[in-house]
C-alpha cells in the first residue's frame, strides 16, 4: 500500500503559472476528490504528475512512497506505480487493445523475462468480464472510434490490468450518460474492494460521480491551490451553493 505526497507544487504551461503551491497527501487506499471550476488547474495537476512534457514543474515535489517522481520519464513513473486515467484518451489506429496492454504488462517484467501469454489472456478476460466488456473489444484499435463510455471503460480496464499504486482519474465522468457512469463507477469500486487497493485522486467537475464513488476526502481547488478540504458533505455543499460560492467565499483567502 502506497502513499502519494504532493508538496508545495508549482506547475506552469510555458510562462504561465497554473498550479501555485498545492499540498496534498493521499494515504494508502484512500480516495480523494478534487473539485473546482474549469480552468483552475485540476487537469494540469494530473497530467503534470504523470509527466506530460507540456507541463513544467517549477517548484515543490511529488513523492510516491517517499521517492520523488519528478526526475522520472513518464514510462518510469507508470512502472513505479502511477496511473493516469485520461479525460480525453488518445485514439491509436492500428494498435489493438490486446497488443497495447500486452506491451504495457511486458514492460513491467524484468529484462529477458517472457510474458506468460495464457495467464495474461486469462487475467485480461476476467477483468473484462468484471467491467462487462465484450471480448471482441480486445481486437479493436485503442480508443479508435470508441464512444465516450467505451473510452472510459477502456481506461478502467487498463487500470485494472496494470494494478497501479496510485491512480489519478481526470474527469472520468465527463461525457458519460448515467448508465455508462454506473458501469465505470462499479469498475472503480471493484478495484477499491480488491486486496491492496490503489490510492485514488478523483478529479471532477460535478458532484454526481461522488454518489457512485464515495470519497474519503473532498478538496476544492481554485486558482491553482486547494482552498478548502472536508469530507463528502463538502461536495454536497458545493453542489448546493455553486462555484460562485467558492469565488466569493474562498478565493479571497488565497488572494
Amino acid at each position: 500500500m502506497s502513499q502519494l505526497e504532493i508538496k508545495d507544487l508549482h506547475i506552469s504551461i510555458g510562462d504561465k503559472p497554473i498550479v501555485k503551491g498545492l499540498n496534498l497527501t493521499i494515504k494508502p487506499g484512500q480516495v480523494h476528490a478534487i473539485m473546482g471550476p474549469n480552468g483552475t488547474g485540476k487537469s494540469t495537476l494530473a497530467k503534470a504528475i504523470a509527466g506530460h512534457p507540456d507541463y513544467a514543474i517549477t517548484g515543490g515535489d511529488v513523492l510516491l512512497d517517499g521517492q520523488s517522481v519528478l526526475a522520472m520519464e513518464p514510462d518510469e513513473r507508470a512502472r513505479a506505480g502511477l496511473f493516469l486515467a485520461f479525460q480525453y484518451p488518445s485514439e491509436i489506429p492500428g494498435v489493438s487493445i490486446a497488443n497495447f496492454l500486452r506491451a504495457a504488462v511486458q514492460a513491467r517484467l524484468a529484462e529477458g523475462e517472457e510474458l506468460d501469454a495464457t495467464g495474461y489472456y486469462k487475467r485480461l478476460y476476467a477483468k473484462m468480464d468484471l467491467l462487462k466488456i465484450d471480448r471482441k473489444f480486445t481486437s479493436r484499435a485503442v480508443n479508435d472510434g470508441f464512444s465516450g463510455g467505451e473510452k472510459k471503460r477502456c481506461e478502467i480496464l487498463q487500470m485494472a490490468m496494470l494494478e497501479p499504486k496510485m491512480a489519478l482519474m481526470d474527469e472520468t465522468d465527463s461525457g458519460l450518460d448515467i448508465d455508462a457512469l454506473r458501469i465505470v463507477a462499479e469498475g472503480v469500486n471493484s478495484i477499491r474492494a480488491a486486496a491492496n487497493p490503489p490510492g485514488i485522486l478523483l478529479i471532477t467537475h460535478y458532484q454526481r460521480l461522488l454518489d457512485y464513488i464515495v470519497p474519503d476526502h473532498v478538496h476544492v481547488m481554485w486558482d491553482g491551490r486547494i482552498v478548502k478540504s472536508g469530507d463528502k458533505s463538502l461536495a454536497l455543499e458545493l453542489e448546493a451553493k455553486g462555484y460562485d460560492w467558492v469565488k466569493q467565499e474562498l478565493a479571497p483567502a488565497t488572494a
Binding site: D75, S90, A103
Partner: peptide, 18 residues
C-alpha cells in the same frame, strides 16, 4: 499518442514501434 503509451509504462522505443 506517444505520451498515452508511455503513461502506461511502455518505454519510448517500444511506444514508437507500436
Amino acid at each position: 499518442q506517444e505520451f498515452y503509451l508511455e503513461s502506461r509504462g511502455i518505454r519510448a522505443a517500444q511506444a514508437q514501434e507500436l
